[in-house]
Computed example of a mutant assay.
Amino acid sequence: MANGLASAQKYPNAYVAVTGGGTAKNNPNATEADQMAAWMIANGLDENRLIVENKSKSTVQNAQFTKCFRKVPNFSCGDIRQLFLRFY
C-alpha cells in the first residue's frame, strides 16, 4: 500500500485502482478494495483519483471487472487488455 501511495504521489495525474470483493472472514460486508481505498484516502490520496472495484471474488474477476472503468478520460477497454497481455 505504501508503495502504491508513493507511486501515486510521484505521478499526480495517475489513477489508482484498488480491487477485491468481500473476502473478510469475520465481516462479509467488508471488501479488500474498500479497505484499501479508505487507507489511501486517510493517507492523503484524493478520492477522485481512485478506481474502486469491490465485487470480484478472484484475481481473474479483479481484471475482468476493472478493465472497463469509465472514470479515466480517453481510456478504452482495449487499452487494459493489451496491458494485461503484455505483462501476464
Score class of each variant (00 low, 15 high):
Ser76Pro: 02
Asn3Cys: 11
Gly20Cys: 05
Thr19Asn: 10
Ala42Ile: 01
Lys25Thr: 11
Pro28Gln: 07
Asn74His: 13
Gln61Thr: 04
Asn54Ser: 15
Ser76Cys: 10
Asn26Leu: 15
Glu47Cys: 04
Asn48Ile: 01
Glu47Met: 08
Gly21Glu: 04
Gln64Glu: 14
Phe87Glu: 11
Glu53Gln: 14
Lys10Gly: 05
Tyr88Gly: 00
Asn54Gly: 06
Met40Val: 04
Ile41Cys: 08
Gln64Ala: 11
Leu50Gln: 06
Arg70Ala: 13
Phe69Val: 10
Leu45Met: 15
Asn43Met: 06
Ala30Pro: 01
Asn13Ala: 14
Glu53Gly: 08
Gln35Met: 15
Leu85Lys: 12
Leu85Val: 01
Asp34Met: 12
Lys10Trp: 06
Ala38Asn: 12
Ile41Met: 10
Pro73Cys: 04
Val16Thr: 10
Val72Met: 09
Val60Gly: 11
Asn54Leu: 03
Tyr15Pro: 00
Asp46His: 05
Ile51Asn: 05
Asn13Trp: 02
Thr19Gly: 00
Asn74Leu: 07
Lys57Ala: 09
Pro12Leu: 08
Gln9Leu: 10
Ala14Cys: 09
Cys77Ser: 10
Asn62Arg: 02
Arg70Pro: 02
Gln64Phe: 06
Phe65Ser: 02
Asn54Met: 03
Ile41Glu: 13
Val60Cys: 02
Ala33Val: 06
Leu50Ile: 09
Gln35Cys: 12
Ser58Pro: 05
Ala63Lys: 07
Asn48Val: 01
Asp46Glu: 08
Val72His: 02
Lys57Cys: 03
Leu50Cys: 08
Met40Gln: 03
Tyr15Cys: 02
Ile51Cys: 05
Ala63Pro: 00
Phe84Thr: 00
Pro28Ile: 14
Pro12Thr: 09
Tyr88Val: 01
Ile51Trp: 05
Cys68Lys: 12
Gln64Ile: 13
Ser7Tyr: 11
Ala38Gly: 04
Asn48Cys: 00
Ala6Tyr: 07
Ala8Asn: 03
Gln82Trp: 00
Ile80Val: 15
Lys25Phe: 13
Leu85His: 07
Asn3Pro: 06
Lys10Tyr: 10
Val60Glu: 11
Thr66Cys: 06
Phe87Pro: 00
Asn13Lys: 15
Asn29Tyr: 12
Phe87Ser: 07
Val52Thr: 12
Met40Trp: 09
Phe69Arg: 04
Asn13His: 13
Gly22Met: 12
Gly44Thr: 06
Thr66Pro: 01
Arg49Gln: 08
Gln35Trp: 11
Leu5Val: 07
Arg70Thr: 14
Ala2His: 13
Ile51Ala: 07
Gly4Tyr: 08
Ala24Glu: 14
Ala30Val: 13
Ser76Asn: 14
Asn13Arg: 11
Gln64Lys: 12
Ala8Trp: 03
Glu53Cys: 08
Arg70Phe: 01
Tyr15Lys: 03
Lys10Ala: 13
Pro28His: 08
Pro28Tyr: 07
Phe75Pro: 00
Asn29Gly: 09
Ala37Lys: 08
Ala17Ser: 14
Asn26Gln: 13
Ala8Phe: 03
Gly21Cys: 05
Leu50Phe: 11
Ser76Met: 10
Asn62Leu: 00
Glu53Leu: 10
Cys77Trp: 04
Lys57Gln: 12
Gly44Pro: 04
Cys68Ala: 15
Lys71Gly: 07
Gly20Leu: 06
Phe87Ile: 12
